[in-house]
């Protein structure tokens, strides 16, 4: 990938880099390199799509939530995720793309979203584990992105992160309660953790050496930390939390390194990661189908809303 776009002069690029280096925030009306804009659209829209697709695995348990309190918490959480999606699409729109276009790309299978949502949510404890590990991993990533150089993205992250923290707490609390419950409940939690642990580690993306976009994103302070740094931070945070509720993380190589103060971990199965990213995960087809179906079945509703607004716009103006 070339970083320099034809239309961007070396002087412009240099001035831009100077602003970045001085720690300035880039706002929508500011000049920015074409590649900077492109990378941000890619990241923000992927992020927005992830929020929306992420509603599906959790939605799978909405009608089976085992208590009214849990049902309310889950509904509110999924609703928050929808709100995050909305907020992020708006942030992407500040870069001159529109939401319809982005959503069309998702439905055409041309846009990515987090690979994690292509895994199935099979038992109720998955809901807790998604909150704890998936929102937890997202927080690590988003806390870093809250300091990103692009203003609207940074502000979106600050706002979203607050809610993600809440989700994580609620997910962890759900699991802690199940771990204090019956043998069946404990087994559910362990089963869910076994299935979600490795995919959550993959959420940080490929190892730095295989991450094609990382270098330029770091240079422009779109990202402030590498994938591997963030992954390590997440693992260091999570291991003690797992121990505290008595659930085992499915990695025999997890070991605390006294020297680095890091938890060393086993080999991530990158073949699985790439397979899921390329569309071959357990639920890629279902997730995309569900999104497309919602969109297609909603077409007549959107058309009606548009037609109605058009018919009555004159009346509103006159009033």
């Amino acid at each position: 990938m070339t970083v320099v776009n034809d239309s961007d002069t070396p002087e412009q690029l240099e001035a831009f880099q100077a602003r970045i280096d001085a720690g300035e925030t880039i706002e929508p009306k500011d000049w920015m390199p074409a590649q900077y804009r492109k990378q941000l659209v890619r990241m923000i829209s992927q992020h927005a799509h992830s929020e929306i697709v992420g509603m599906l695995p959790e939605g799978n348990w909405l009608t089976r939530a085992p208590s009214l309190r849990r049902k309310k918490i889950l509904l509110a959480k999924i609703q928050d995720e929808g709100g995050h999606g909305l907020y992020l699409y708006c942030a992407a729109e500040t870069l001159g793309v529109d939401r319809t276009e982005l959503i069309d790309q998702l439905h055409a299978g041309k846009a990515k979203y987090s690979q994690i949502f292509n895994y199935p949510s099979l038992n109720w404890a998955d809901i807790g584990v998604i909150g704890w590990l998936v929102d937890g991993a997202a927080i690590v990533n988003q806390t870093m992105l809250a300091k990103t150089s692009y203003g609207p993205y940074s502000r979106a992250m600050i706002r979203i992160c607050k809610e993600e923290n809440f989700h994580k707490k609620q997910g962890y609390e759900l699991l802690a309660q199940m771990m204090e419950g019956t043998k069946d409940q404990q087994a559910m939690v362990q089963d869910a953790v076994n299935r979600w642990w490795w995919p959550s580690l993959m959420m940080f993306g490929p190892s730095d050496k295989d991450s094609p976009n990382s270098k330029v994103l770091l240079k422009w302070k779109v990202k402030r930390k590498t994938n591997d740094e963030l992954r390590q931070r997440f693992i260091n945070m999570t291991v003690p939390q797992a121990n505290a509720i008595g659930v085992k993380l499915p990695d025999p190589d997890l070991q605390f390194d006294e020297k680095t103060k890091n938890w060393n971990f086993g080999e991530i199965n990158w073949d699985e990661f790439w397979a899921v990213v390329k569309g071959h995960g357990p639920c890629n087809v279902e997730r995309l189908e569900a999104r497309r179906a919602a969109h297609d079945e909603g077409r007549w509703v959107r058309e009606a809303a548009e037609a109605y607004a058009e018919k009555h716009s004159g009346i509103k103006k006159a009033a």
Binding site: I52, G59, K71, V301
Partner: peptide
């Protein structure tokens, strides 16, 4: 709640 994640428009889903 059966609509959650399947609404015709994101705003309406919410």
């Amino acid at each position: 709640s059966e609509w959650c994640g399947h609404g015709p428009i994101l705003e309406e889903d919410i």
